[in-house]
């Protein structure tokens, strides 16, 4: 029997806009994944720690304040530093087009901006499933 995919949805930074994060968390849960939601105002350290403790396969970061260029890569860095090499990080929020390639270079594998259908997120997770479960 295959292991169920575990996903951490996390809110780094100080903004309280959690509507998107909560929607994605709930929609992923409805799609059959195991989902943990951190709540708002989490430090990159706390997110990395939770991801490792909870043994998740994916971390989804949501940020709407504009601090993504600083905080998203920091989460990836801390995960890798702690030896979590296979955890896949993706992100979402109000993120300008031109920042997306920078974030991808920093190891955030996908970035979903406002108006993205949830199916796109599901497709992304399914496409990476093999890699995670390998």
């Amino acid at each position: 029997m295959s292991k169920r995919i575990r996903i951490l949805i996390a809110k780094p930074g100080l903004d309280g806009h959690d509507r998107g994060a909560k929607y994605v968390a709930r929609a992923l849960k409805d799609a059959g994944y195991e989902v943990i939601y951190t709540g708002i105002r989490q430090s990159p350290e706390a997110i990395a720690k939770t991801a490792i403790q909870e043994d998740v396969d994916f971390v989804g970061l949501s940020l709407l304040s504009g601090a993504h260029n600083e905080l998203f890569p920091e989460v990836v860095r801390l995960l890798r530093k702690e030896g979590a090499k296979n955890i896949i990080v993706f992100g979402g929020g109000v993120i300008p087009e031109e920042d997306i390639s920078f974030l991808q270079e920093q190891g955030i594998e996908a970035v979903f901006t406002p108006g993205t259908p949830i199916q796109k997120v599901l497709n992304f997770i399914e496409s990476k499933k093999e890699k995670v479960l390998a």
Binding site: G13, L14, D15, S65, G66, A67, H68, L71
Partner: peptide, 22 residues
């Protein structure tokens, strides 16, 4: 900005990335 709204000075570690943003 968010640090001001949550009562952190700009040089507080919790303010990283957020200073002057929103």
């Amino acid at each position: 900005d968010l640090p001001t709204q949550i009562g952190y000075d700009s040089d507080d570690p919790k303010s990283v990335g957020e200073v002057g943003k929103v």
